[in-house]
Each structure stands twice: as structure tokens, then as C-alpha cells.
Amino acid sequence: MLEANNLSIERGGRRVLSDVSAAFAAGEITAIVGPNGAGKSSLVLALAGLLDPVGGAVTLDGRSIHALPPRERARMLGYLPQDTDIAWDVAVEQLVALGRLPHGDRGRDEVEAAISMLALEDLRHRPASRLSGGEKARVLLARVLAGTPEWVLADEPLAALDLAHAKALTEHFREIADSGSGVVLVVHDLAVAMNCADRVIVLSDGKCVATGTPADALTQEIIKRVWGVDADWLGKPGQHALVIRRP
């Protein structure tokens, strides 16, 4: 169990998270949603152990992750940043293998498994500069998976992806959760959170305002309160669409 307990974070002298408590379960997809500036990225960074709290703590199976040595923490928590600018024109296979750095080995089997899971076999020798947005997103997720982390923490992994690639990546996250790992995603699209997540955490102004199943956390009332819009859910479970009412 990954938990944030009364977590408070400051960045650039500004309080971005205040007293946030949330629990994340292995084998589930948890979506973190909220308006811009709500603290979603800060929460996922803190869960990855990359931001030190000014109050509270993040614990993994009861142990504070801030007390863990960086490499040990990295072996358990795989973090996928929002924007990854790949500095050098490295081939896909080498990029995926970077996921083995915390383990200090080449991990050929794990790298192959990640390449296979994300269907990157045909791209393994392709340089990063020649990847499309969707291919790059798959490669970067494969890099995280090559480290065989117990947790995958991704900051807006679906941003800038077209519909087909977003759907494919979402299915990969489901596979990862079904394999027993915990998946935490920051998403903007509430329909994705509603249809694909097992649990949802709604943040607003650095505070946790709702948590629970998608149906419980993304009610019309909460959407109105947090995003300031009147909206209706249409469709059936797993295929919901959010429609904003005209004034």
C-alpha cells in the first residue's frame, strides 16, 4: 500500500499541497484529477519520492519512502514524467534499458519483456528522433516497466496523444495493474478517469476534495464545485462521456 499521510508540499516558496491524505492500492489504477494548478503533478512527484514534504509523509507498506536510499526507492517506484526531452539520439533498445539503472544490471529478460509488452520489437533499433509521439510514449513507458517496479506513477501520460494511441496506452496501464502492480495516473480527461480508473482522487487548490470509486468521486456536484461547470455523464459504465451543459 502506497499512502500519503497529511502530506504538505511547498515549491518555489508556495504551498502546493496541504494536508493531503490518500491511499493507493496495488493491482488498481488510481487516477488523480483536478483543475490546472491543483497540485496533481506535485502529488505524483511526492509519491515517487522526488519532492520532500514540509509536513506529513509518503509511506510504502508502512515505511517512509523519504528514508529509503534513492536506488532502492527507484527499484520500487517507477516514475514517468509528463514531458521527456530525450537529450541524445539513442536507439529504442538503449532507452528502454535505462530502466535497469537502479538495479545496476543489463536485465536483458526484463528489457525484452518490456519491449514485447509495448509491442516495440520492430522499433528496437530506431533512434529517438525518428519516433512519433505515440511511439515515444510507448518507449518511455517500456523504460519504466524494464525496471520492474511495484508501482508505476505517470504524470499526464495521455497528454498530446491522439485517440487511438491514448486508448492503446490506457490498455497497457490496465495490463500493468492486472499483473499486480499499482498504477497512479495524473489525467485531465475526466472521462478517462471515469472509464479506466478503479479509484479517483480529486484535488483542488492543493487539497483533496474527493476520493473513492469514479462514480463516487466524479459526481455532477463535485465537478460543479471543483471545475465550476455543469456537466452530465452519459452512457453506460466503462463507456461514459461527459457532456457540458450549455448556459
Binding site: 534513492p70 527507484a74 514524467p81 526531452d85 532507452l95 535505462l98 530502466g99 539503472l101 523504460r143
Partner: peptide, 19 residues
């Protein structure tokens, strides 16, 4: 190897255990 990790950016490198 820490420099290799920086290929993916500073945040990703830290997430890979780079101090």
C-alpha cells in the same frame, strides 16, 4: 551511468535513483 540517466531529463534521472 548517472549521466546516462540524465538523457531522460533531471526528474527522470532522479526517479532512476541518481543522487
Amino acid at each position: 551511468r548517472s549521466l546516462d540517466a540524465l538523457t531522460l531529463g533531471e526528474e527522470a534521472a532522479r526517479s532512476l535513483g541518481v543522487d
